[in-house]
Design a binder for these strands. Structure first.
Length: 848
RNA sequence: GCGGGUGUGGUGGAACGGUAGACACAUCAGACUUAAAAUCUGAAGGGCAUCGCCCGUGCGGGUUCGAUUCCCGCCACCCGCACCA
């Protein structure tokens, strides 16, 4: 019998299915909830998906073998822009496109043999799902967690539509090429900032999250303590008496030389009677809205005729600028400029000829700031040149900050305040393919929540995408509904929800996916929280923070029980699968991307055209860059087990992995070798002999190491140990029964990674039932200890020799042996060692 | 720009502060073959040149008996930056 992957894999998948092995049920057993971030149905699965789900499956199958009642579901993050883009490009409907993609991708995933409970599958674009989301929204609205306010969007003046940041290229709309404007719209917001402190505190309990993710979230929430104060205003338009400011560096309050406000600041708008200011503000509003773009853009300002006066000393009068680097969304939309101690302020001051006042200097130096702002860590002790009448005060910046806060509070010039960088979550999207916001706008009653009885508010199917913009806005009838409050004709909200909303509670929905309420108390109580969540680092902030917010919001609204405020008990962030990008340039110098199979790497050319390619190494796989690898070919050629083993081996799971086609073949060879070995061992008839004990020890070792690798998310190490163990078993001349027993253990250890082959081997070698449900093997501790140990001998820190000694030999005895070692004698050349270090059980170092 | 990572042979990578390169890919040699494939066995960081030594974990410093690991300063690349999912 050869290793017929297709037949073997189909056989066992059918058998698992028949036995409903992966149907998650509440039971007396302890539960374990494994979840991989659900996929966006982009068209076909790519190798990154395989890596993600193979990892989750290892955990799920391992936990199942350990006796847990496992929940391992799968669904689809199905709303979003690509479906609308496809509709615009090809004339189809986003719904058809999405569901067809789901069918294709489900069809590609099932052959992988994942231990998924497919009975719980849903897509976020199912009305049964988003209807419950609308119910959640209404409850959150009632609980005061949702509100409306004005916010800026990217507006394409030619296409007359709102653009996502992604759709803005160099400040221009990606379709129209028109210069993008910022425009204000009234939009819905989740009050996530109100939970900033809780979300920050909660991070402290997440000891099974990567440190880096907690750090990133902490920095994102950005708690700071600073000074809140008002600048006085001179020459400002009527109604503007003061300019509120918040600064995290009150210790620099003696060095500001200017103040600046955002172009969208009310004061800046009021000054637009000056045509130059109007023009400057208009120019600012054509700048991209992303923080990265603003920070990188050239710092521009426009001097106003208004001046501000210092709160502690009104005789100090500073010029007021409107500046493109000040964001209205942050703080008060106005900043204090202290050039000596902020690089951005310094660049600005140099550009506009403003003074630079040193507030503090490094200890022992009288050097003033030139081109580089002096910004030491807050814990650094510095010399304050003149701190409120105390010259030469040598304290840390933090001490100076604290003293300044106290001084300003005492003087009534300002207030100490805690502030967060975290902004409220704008959820309105002016797009069709999303969850409709269940609100009706009534001329008399205002924004009225839809009645729960009328949910779901279903997206209309009869829409077209021949023109840009939101089809809901131009639908002839969908908008027209009676006001839920007064019954008069009113209009539906046509904005839909950010797709992040969909993915912020799906984990909870999986616990009762068909329920007529968002969740069911008993199911949520049994299954929550997710014990192991797995996904890409690119979600380290937004998705994970939003989910943590939603879990809390669902508690507030009674949809989740106590103890679920941290929905993901453990998080693992896998690395991305990257691949080189192959590109050429078109006539206008714009990049044209080529699929890996279209290029000839030997010559570095495109096969068909012979054009020379540029290779951009190691980039995130993306459809638009055409550097996506389809795992289908590997699965078709070698089977699912090979694909799974391949993506789990070699690279550590948290690390990005550069995909190369070579290697799948070799992986398959190994599995074939294991299969053949199992056949030999199953047939063999050989009496027990002395090697049985050695094999038993190697088996115990393998159990410990492979288990450790799985528990520690180091599947690559588990795989390496499995290779080693296979080699040992291959060479072992132990008796037939001993080898069969070891082979069964090998099957068990391989089962989470290559479940089909493992079942086949288990069956061949006389295992009972499914290897999938067989209890995870345990190692006999007695087999793990060796009675001798080999100690490397270092001379001056470099390995020169080694000795093998009994495990419990004492240090003086070891020292004596070491001093007789040939290499040591040679190095010492008759002299005595200056030092002899023996680390018991590990190493010896001779300092000559 | 800001926040967070990563960097080790030809390649993927391994290594509680303790033998750098486990395990594998690719390579080379041998066995089996008429031959090839498949399979099996073995070699291998670079160098000087043999049974010993030198150099080697992005770069430059430091701590230590000993540093891939800890500290300081750089460089390169990757992720995120709030309307991509």
């Amino acid at each position: 019998m050869s290793y017929e992957t297709a037949a073997i894999e189909a056989k066992w998948q059918a058998a698992w299915d028949e036995a409903s092995l992966f149907r998650a049920t509440r039971s007396a057993a302890p539960k374990y909830y494994v979840l991989e971030m659900f996929p966006y149905p982009s068209g076909r699965i790519h190798i990154g998906h395989v890596r993600n789900y193979a990892m989750g499956d290892v955990i799920a199958r391992y936990r199942m073998a350990c006796g847990f009642s496992v929940l391992h579901p799968m669904g689809w993050d199905a709303f979003g822009m690509p479906a609308e883009n496809a509709a615009m490009a090809s004339g189809g409907h986003p719904k058809d496109w999405t569901y067809q993609n789901i069918d294709v991708m489900r069809g590609q995933m099932k052959p992988l043999g994942l231990s998924i409970d497919w009975s719980r599958e849903f897509a976020t674009c199912d009305p049964e799902y988003y209807g419950q989301q609308q119910a959640l929204f209404l409850d959150m609205l009632e609980a005061g967690l949702v509100y409306r306010k004005s916010a800026t969007v990217n507006w394409d003046p030619v296409d007359m539509t709102v653009l996502a940041n992604e759709q803005v290229e160099d400040g221009r709309g990606w379709r129209s090429g028109a210069e993008v404007e910022r425009r204000e719209l009234t939009q819905w917001f989740f009050r996530i900032s109100g939970m900033a402190e809780e979300l920050l505190d909660g991070l402290g309990t997440l000891d099974k999250w990567p440190e880096k993710v907690r750090l990133m979230q902490e920095n994102w929430i950005g708690k700071s303590r600073g000074l809140s104060f008002d600048f006085g205003l001179k020459g400002a338009p009527a109604g503007f008496d003061a300019l509120p400011i918040y600064t995290t560096r009150p210790d620099t309050m003696l060095g500001p030389t200017f103040a600046a406000i955002a172009a969208d600041h009310p004061l800046a708008k009021a000054l637009e009677t000056d045509p130059e200011i109007a023009a400057f503000n208009a120019r600012c509003r054509t700048m991209p809205t992303t923080e990265a773009a603003m920070e990188k853009a050239e710092k521009l300002g426009h001097l106003t005729s208004v001046t501000v006066t210092h709160p502690a000393d009104p005789s100090v009068e500073l010029p007021l600028f409107i500046a493109n680097f000040v964001l209205m969304e942050y703080g008060t939309g106005a900043v204090i400029g202290c050039p000596a101690h902020d690089q951005r302020d310094l660049d600005f001051a140099r550009r506009y000829g403003l003074d630079v006042i040193d507030v503090f200097k490094p200890l022992g130096s009288d050097e003033g700031v030139a081109d580089v702002a002096y910004v030491p860590p807050k814990t650094t002790k510095v010399r304050y040149v003149c701190w409120h009448g105390e010259p030469g005060l040598e304290i840390t910046c933090q001490e100076a900050i604290d003293r300044t806060l106290a001084l300003y509070e005492a003087g009534g010039w300002g207030k100490a305040r805690t502030q967060y960088r975290l902004r409220d979550w704008g959820l309105s999207r002016q797009r069709y393919w999303g969850c409709p916001i269940p609100v009706v706008h009534c001329a008399d009653c205002g924004a009225v929540p839809e009645k729960k009885a009328n949910l779901p508010v279903v997206l209309p199917d009869d829409v077209t995408f021949d023109v840009p913009g939101n089809p809901l806005d131009r639908h002839p009838t969908w908008r027209d509904v009676p006001c839920p409050a007064c019954g008069k004709p009113a209009r539906r909200e046509t904005d839909t929800m950010d797709t992040f909303v969909d993915s912020s509670w799906y984990y909870a929905r999986f616990t009762a996916p068909r329920a007529a309420t968002p969740t069911v108390a008993e199911d949520a109580a049994y299954w929550m929280n997710v014990d192991q969540y797995i996904g890409g680092v690119e979600h380290a902030i937004l998705h994970l923070l939003y989910s943590r917010f939603f879990a809390r919001a669902m508690q507030v609204t009674g949809h989740l029980p106590e103890g679920t405020e941290e929905p993901f008990a453990a998080l693992f962030t896998q690395g991305m699968v990257t691949h080189a990008i192959y590109q050429t340039r078109d006539g206008r110098g714009r990049p044209v991307y080529h699929l890996p199979e279209e290029v000839d790497l030997a010559t570095g050319t495109v096969r068909v055209t012979g054009e020379q390619i540029e290779i951009i190494p190691s980039a995130k796989m993306s459809k638009s860059k055409r550097n996506v690898v389809d795992p289908q070919d590997i699965i078709a050629a070698y089977g699912a087990d090979t694909a799974r083993w391949f993506v789990l081996s070699d690279s550590p799971p948290e690390r990005d992995v550069e995909w190369t086609a070579a290697g799948a073949e070799a992986t398959h060879k190994h599995l074939r070798r294991v299969h053949r070995l199992a056949e030999d061992i199953a047939r063999a008839d050989r009496a027990p002999n002395g090697a049985d004990a050695d094999l038993a020890r190697a088996t115990a070792r393998a159990v410990v190491d492979v288990t450790g690798g799985i528990e520690g998310f180091a599947f690559n190490k588990s795989v390496a140990r499995l290779y080693e163990f296979t080699n040992v078993l291959h060479k072992s001349d132990a008796g037939a029964e001993a080898r069969r027993a070891a082979m069964r253990v090998l099957a068990q250890l391989m089962a989470p990674m290559t479940p089909h082959l493992a079942e086949e081997i288990w069956e061949m070698t006389g295992g009972a039932g499914f290897v999938t449900t067989a209890p995870w093997p345990e190692a006999d501790p007695a087999l793990l200890v060796d009675d001798t140990v080999t100690l490397p001998i270092q001379i001056n820190g470099k390995r020169r020799s080694e000795i093998t000694v009994p495990k419990d030999m004492d240090t003086p005895a070891i020292e004596a042996l070491v001093l007789r070692d040939a290499a040591v004698l040679r190095a010492l050349d008759g002299g005595a060692p200056r030092k002899l270090i023996v680390v018991p059980g590990r190493i010896v170092n001779v300092v000559a």
